[in-house]
Amino acid sequence: MLHLSRRTRIDLRNGLLFISPWLVGLIVFTIYPIFASIYFSFTDYTVLRPPRWVGLQNYIALFTEDVLFPKSLGNTLYYAAFALPLGMIGSVGLALLLNKKLLGMSVYRTVFYLPNILPTVAMSVLWIWLFNPNYGLFNSILQQLGLPGVPWLTSPKWSKPSLIIMSLWGIGGSMVIYLAGLQDIPEHLYEAAELDGANSWQKTWHVTLPMLTPTIFFNLVMGLIGVFSYFTQAFIMTNGGPVDSTLFYMLYLYRNAFVYFKMGYASAMAWILFIIVVSLTALVFKSSGRWVYYGGALT
């Protein structure tokens, strides 16, 4: 039994009371649903009736019978494989450019960050127009350049690349984090490199990027979670089409849960996704020892 002084006990009680709204929210709206969904994933649960235990049936059906499950997973992996690295390269590059000490730089930073404060729904509607094959801005530009138009969202070949291109519009969010990371890099490292005769490229490659790796690591993990939970844009812009080419994992999960009332099945999907994301995140963490450099830390 832990012996606490009266003062500590009072502090503990008051502390718990102060955080109780958050604690209650966490338990009721996060922890309970998480554990409940583990149970539901082993049941046939329509919400309308009590759950019926079916063992591994939902998981078996997902892997052996459901043609849309591998399709939605494949679409999501495709999106992740391109959107995540392109987004990271883009945002690091942009942050490097916007880290220069030039007049009006804060204006540029604001401009690049602005898309992030737009509601995703409004942004999606806007991009539907940009992608319009006959009247959209992109095909107008291509036409001006004498290039043929692209069918963008209306073609199964182009629909995913279109959404990947669109995702790059939001790189301002991680760019801001990279900028903060860049400004944490001590000036003396650059001075030392200059004394050693390093040019700009060498300073970027041997000083900036290694010192930025903790930020890259953070954005990689967050980005990984983000790309696997990709939903809103596809829901609004294409609703899974054409011919399932944008049926992403979360969209299919949503349909199972709230359109087909297959809550147990959707819970199983959620746990499979959780395992995939956790595994990939664990891999990133495991590999981080080799490429993430915490400046000044003893390793």
Binding site: I128, N132, P133, N134, Y135, G136, P151, L153, T154, S155, P242
Partner: peptide, 11 residues
């Protein structure tokens, strides 16, 4: 073709 029709009606 559906792609052409979709492209037309989408705008």
């Amino acid at each position: 073709p559906v792609e052409k029709v979709s492209a037309f009606t989408a705008g």
